[in-house]
Simulated scan of single mutants.
Amino acid sequence: MAAALATDFVTKWLILNIVMVPPRTIEVAPFFNLTLGFNTGVSFGMFQEIFLDRPLLLAGISIAISAGFLVWAMRSPRPSDTIGLGLIAGGAMGNVLDRMRQGAVTDFLDFHLGGWHFPAFNMADTVITIGALLLIAGSLWSPGSTAPAEKRPSRAAQ
């Protein structure tokens, strides 16, 4: 969690205080730009109209969800789940800090194909996605997993 939070904090600080002074679009590759944006909604800017004037409400919801992920991480026996949940919680807390500090999340990674642009995002969103992929992978390819209860022989049959 700490590494995810630190990565997000440092990259956003660099973007806001060095790279995007003045704000502009920087073409890094034919499919990737650095561009400064601020998201007052949830993922991909959804529900902006609801949370525009209530950034602390969204921050509070995110804190509660992050706490749930941390409890889950502490109770999980699988290292992949613990790491994945820690990444999700750390990324979420990075975005919470933005909301509390400036009322919106700083986004700057802009991938595009021709004129179509994927919604801009940040390192917090990246580690959240990696964490979710670890959870999915861990649930699909868990070593030593047992068969579902209905397929295991019963104690009486042994």
Rank of each mutant, 00 (worst) to 15 (best):
R78N: 14
N95T: 05
D125L: 07
T35C: 14
A157M: 11
F118G: 12
P148D: 09
T11F: 15
D53I: 02
F38I: 07
F47L: 07
A147K: 10
F111A: 11
T106K: 02
A2Y: 10
D110M: 10
A3K: 02
D53L: 03
F47V: 06
R155C: 06
D110Y: 10
T25G: 11
I128M: 01
F69R: 05
N17D: 03
D107E: 01
I130E: 01
G138I: 05
F9N: 15
W116T: 14
I63T: 04
E27K: 12
V96C: 11
A149W: 10
I26W: 14
A137Y: 08
R75V: 02
A64S: 03
T40A: 11
G41A: 02
M93G: 09
G60N: 13
T106I: 04
Q48M: 06
V10P: 15
F32M: 08
Q158I: 11
A67R: 08
D98E: 09
R99T: 04
I15Y: 13
K151I: 04
N39P: 10
V96Y: 04
A104Y: 02
G68S: 06
G45T: 14
L85R: 01
L133G: 05
R78C: 05
F121H: 07
G115H: 14
K12P: 15
A157K: 10
F108Y: 10
N39F: 00
A92Q: 00
G138C: 05
L134W: 01
S66M: 04
G37Q: 09
R99L: 13
G103L: 04
R101K: 13
S62T: 13
T146K: 14
G114T: 02
N122P: 12
G45F: 13
V96W: 02
P30H: 09
M74A: 12
S66F: 05
L16I: 07
A89P: 06
